[in-house]
Amino acid sequence: MNPINLTLVVLFVISAFVTGIWLSSILKIQFFPKFADISNIFDLIFDAEEKSEKIKYIILLSTYLLSPVIVAVAFFTGFEPAGEYSCRQYKYFLDYSVQGILKKKFIDRENHSFKTLVLLNGKGEVIDREIDFYFPAVYDLIEKGDTVIKAAKSNEMTVKKKGKVQRFASRNLCTEE
Rank of each mutant, 00 (worst) to 15 (best):
T19F: 07
G20Q: 11
I21G: 13
I21C: 08
W22L: 07
W22H: 08
S25L: 11
S25Y: 08
S25D: 10
I26M: 09
I26L: 10
L27N: 06
L27Q: 06
L27M: 10
K28W: 05
Q30E: 15
F32R: 06
F35T: 15
F35A: 14
A36K: 13
D37C: 07
D37W: 04
I38C: 04
S39E: 15
S39F: 12
I45V: 13
F46H: 12
A48Q: 11
E49I: 10
E49D: 15
K51E: 15
S52F: 01
S52A: 15
K54M: 09
I55G: 05
I55C: 04
I55M: 13
K56G: 03
K56V: 07
I58P: 00
I58H: 04
I59N: 11
L60N: 06
L61H: 03
T63E: 13
T63A: 13
Y64E: 05
L65F: 06
L65H: 06
L66W: 05
S67L: 04
S67D: 12
P68T: 05
P68I: 13
V69A: 03
I70D: 06
A72G: 07
V73S: 05
F76I: 12
T77P: 02
T77Q: 12
G78L: 09
G83A: 11
Y85S: 11
S86T: 13
R88M: 10
R88V: 05
Q89K: 13
Q89C: 08
Q89E: 15
Y90Q: 04
Y92K: 14
L94N: 04
L94E: 03
Y96A: 04
V98G: 00
V98E: 03
Q99P: 00
G100R: 00
I101V: 15
K104F: 09
F106I: 07
D108L: 08
D108Q: 14
E110D: 13
E110Y: 11
E110G: 07
H112N: 15
S113C: 09
L117D: 01
L119I: 00
L120F: 01
K123T: 07
G124A: 11
G124S: 09
E125I: 09
D128W: 03
D128C: 09
R129S: 07
E130N: 14
F133S: 02
Y134G: 02
F135I: 10
P136G: 09
A137K: 09
A137V: 10
A137C: 05
V138K: 02
V138A: 01
I142P: 01
K144D: 08
V148K: 01
I149D: 08
K150Q: 06
A151K: 13
A152I: 09
S154G: 12
N155R: 08
N155C: 04
N155L: 05
E156A: 12
M157C: 11
T158F: 03
K161A: 03
G163C: 05
G163L: 05
K164L: 14
K164H: 09
